[in-house]
């Protein structure tokens, strides 16, 4: 039972991060390789707001969430907007540079030491006993519920929301979208905002559950195979991919060697790229061929 709980929790973490990769790729065909750093920035923002709103954890969390959304939009407006119309490779390399810059800045500002935003906010993190003998920490449970809500919300937004449909339209044919009066910059900024928001939520919840260090970006990097295995332009794919990567990692830790935990997601990714490069639910035609 505990094994299943661990798989669900780890998969939920990867899924919540992976949907950010998918949102940006689906709309603009850009792989955001700074997503792990943006996720970690969200966690550090919570640390900062926890200090600013001492004694008012709800306000601290709300401020961190709003700031995360704003960070995503600002990254697009001041950096990625310039990349519109340029080669996708240039945009991807820009995200690599952004990630490196953010990582350095965060260490400079908050140091590389382990920090605990949960303590700063005055939260305890008691374990909850589950039927069947499993246990789950409170913030891990909140993370699983949050992932479910985020995916449900994104599904409804993209399927029924006017701006959600516009995001899908812009991802399919940006020229026609512009011909139909859709402001592509607004759509891309929204995608960056939502992507950073969901990633930051994952970062905040991981930090509340188990603390925050500058090595958190590794988790963001390990969510990337989840998005690729599922198919980079599919949210359902990201969910399934996260489950596969999460299960493979937990099972390898349990039955083979805990040292494999950082390797297994990429082994699964390589296997998938060989067998089905467009992923389980991805669109085959969307791949640029070598």
């Amino acid at each position: 039972m505990q094994l299943a709980v661990n798989i669900v929790v780890l998969s939920a973490i990867y899924a919540l991060i992976a949907c950010g990769y998918v949102l940006i790729y689906r709309v603009s065909r850009v792989l955001n390789l700074a997503h792990g750093e943006l996720m970690m920035l969200g966690a550090y923002l919570l640390l900062a707001t926890a200090a600013s709103f001492a004694g008012n954890p709800v306000a601290a969390i709300a401020a961190a969430v709003v700031l995360s959304l704003a960070v995503g939009i600002l990254v697009y407006v001041f950096l990625m907007r310039k990349m519109t119309g340029e080669m996708v490779l240039a945009a991807v390399l820009t995200t690599v540079a952004l990630g490196t810059l953010l990582r350095g800045l965060m260490v400079l500002i908050w140091s590389a030491q382990q920090q605990y935003p949960g303590q700063a906010l005055g939260f305890a993190n008691p374990a909850i006993a589950l039927p069947g003998g499993g246990r789950i920490s409170t913030f891990a449970a909140i993370l699983v519920v949050t992932t479910a809500l985020v995916y449900g919300g994104l599904f409804v937004f993209l399927r029924f929301g006017r701006w959600g449909v516009r995001m899908r339209a812009a991802g399919q044919n940006p020229l026609l979208a512009a011909q139909r009066g859709i402001n592509l910059h607004a759509v891309y900024a929204l995608a960056w905002g939502l992507s950073t928001l969901t990633g930051s939520m994952a970062g905040m919840l991981i930090a509340l559950d188990s603390g925050l260090t500058s090595s958190m970006t590794v988790i963001g990097l390990k969510a990337f195979p989840a998005a690729l295995v599922g198919g980079l332009d599919s949210l359902v794919g990201a969910l399934v991919g996260a489950l596969i990567i999460g299960a493979a990692e937990v099972l390898s830790i349990q039955y083979i060697d805990p040292l494999l935990s950082d390797v297994v997601p990429f082994l699964v990714l390589i296997a998938m790229l060989i067998v089905r490069p467009w992923g389980l639910f991805g669109t085959r035609e969307e791949l640029d061929r070598v």
Partner: peptide
Amino acid sequence: LTVIENLTAPF
């Protein structure tokens, strides 16, 4: 997109 979504997307 479906027909109805094609009619929803435009400004």
